[in-house]
Amino acid sequence: MPVTVKTFTSTHDAAAALSSDRSARYLGGGTLVMRALNEGDISISTVVRASDHAMTRIDATGSRITLGAGVTFARILVERDLAFLHAPARSIGGPAVRNMGTVGGNLFAPVPYGDFTVAMLALDATVSVQGGLGGREIALDEFLQSRDRQTGVLVLAISFAKPGSAEAFRYRKIARIKPKGGAVITLAAHLPVNGSRIVGARVALGSMAPTPIRARAAERALEGRSLDASTISAAAAAAVEGTSPGDNALASAWYRREIVGVHLKRLLSGQE
């Protein structure tokens, strides 16, 4: 059953087409949508595209960075100002997937995918979405919690404050196949320091729940402290709190719970 492909120059029209048709799916890089179509997924009957250049814009000059939803990982990797995001971008797929896959599509990628979104969540990113009725900004955290209900909206861009220093942002993906492979778990942390104390700690985890989630207990263990051995141990011990990982071919839920603290400890102590 062929699908109908609709390409719009305006994001507004694309959003209207998405919100008015339950079987319409937006096509970003298509690495997940085309998989579904190739498998014969009959829930998709219309594919919507938007050719507006704003969708592929990168604004990384100021202190607040905006990535259009259609920006690919390969483009992030050639952007000097985004050096802190090279580790998450490089951890995704092989080179072809990085040339195709987008930041916007990653927000919707199911476990074991969504690595870049874990990084975005640790940076407290905000998502700009365009619905049938209009545009709005929504915190990524909130967006992910209601992700199942976000079908029918168009994501325009994602934005976040640039980390103050290179060490403040850390990322680690645990995979069985290197240099590529789906994540066993993914971790990212943003630890802004004021004096010697962490202020505004963010820890995000991938593959520890159906969507990337914040490890709030670990964040609390870090907040207001200096990053010493006892703080790191306390955060690592709290990492598993509030998580609900699943079993898949890469690892069992039990294994994920066992290792999340170990890897958070390594991430925080800068161990390889």
Binding site: G30, T31, M34, R35, N38, A96, N99, M100
Partner: peptide, 13 residues
């Protein structure tokens, strides 16, 4: 000039 997976590329693009 960029590497892509043709199976995951919508022909129309």
């Amino acid at each position: 000039g960029e590497l892509h997976l043709s199976c995951l590329t919508l022909a129309e693009t």
